[in-house]
Amino acid sequence: MSTPVPAVRAPGADTEAVQVATRVLGRGTRLPGWFVILWRNGKCRLGLLMLAGFVLVAIFAPVIGRYDPRDDDFDTSAGPSAAHWLGTTALGEDVFAQLVFGARTSLVVGIAAGLLCTVIGLVVGLTAGYLGGWLDEVLSFFINLGLVVPALPLMVTLAAYSPVRGLTLIILVISVTGWAYGARIKRSQIITLRTRDYITAARFAGDRTARIIAHEIVPNMTSLIVVGFMGAALGAIGGEAGLAFLGLGDPQTVSWGTMLNQASLGGALLSGQWAWLIAPGAALALLITSFTLINFGIDALSNPHLRED
């Protein structure tokens, strides 16, 4: 192992090794290699199971929730009972149904904003990193701007002054404020990858820039892209809850953030409706915990040494 290979490779080389490892591991089973690595990690497995639970709840929300979350025909501000497991809101809606449907909103926002952030980050990062020069200077300026401007006040401002309200707006606002971090990481990664000999070789083989990026570079950074997506989704879920709690969410959608907002406005604390107050916060905390646990596994994915124990 000593002779021809430099003893330690640049950090970028690791992500290449990851892609190879995931291919090799996937060979014996029907499962993809990355999944095998994630599943073997105890913390990550718990996180995956928790996330799967949330996804199932979100999909089967109408069955599990029993009531329409917008249906306000029940007693107002009732405590937990057999009919209403977590009680009802000040407007007479079922809290449990809202909680269950809220999972939908959180996951949709997480996935959509996560994807959007990743795509913006990928496009900006790859362009800046691969082409370099003045374009890199310009794009890096915007990346730095995005990193420096505090996200929450910007989100609040954008959401508060926008003429329209809706989930799409929330997703857009979160993406616009959250893409920069991923872009920065991808830019530095591509800078280490683009000087590899195989990129030069691809140019000598007559490949065009777009093809080189898509077929030679991107496959070597999938683990980084996945990590970026997870981080962005996590931030988006928190961001949506925050905006909604401040009353800047979409009034038409039930989400954990709007539930917290309503609980606060509806005097849950005064009427002693602990379940109404705690349930959405706890659900939010659990979802974020599941993402964090999954990230332990992703660490193992990008660092082969962590896989051994």
């Binding site: 090794a17 030069t200 070597n220």
Partner: peptide
């Protein structure tokens, strides 16, 4: 690009001259 068809390279490090995922 057309000229490169006539001139090709063999690299020093065979470990980095091939894309590990291809």
């Amino acid at each position: 690009r057309d000229y490169r068809r006539h001139v090709q390279m063999i690299f020093q490090d065979p470990f980095s001259a091939l894309n590990p995922t291809r």
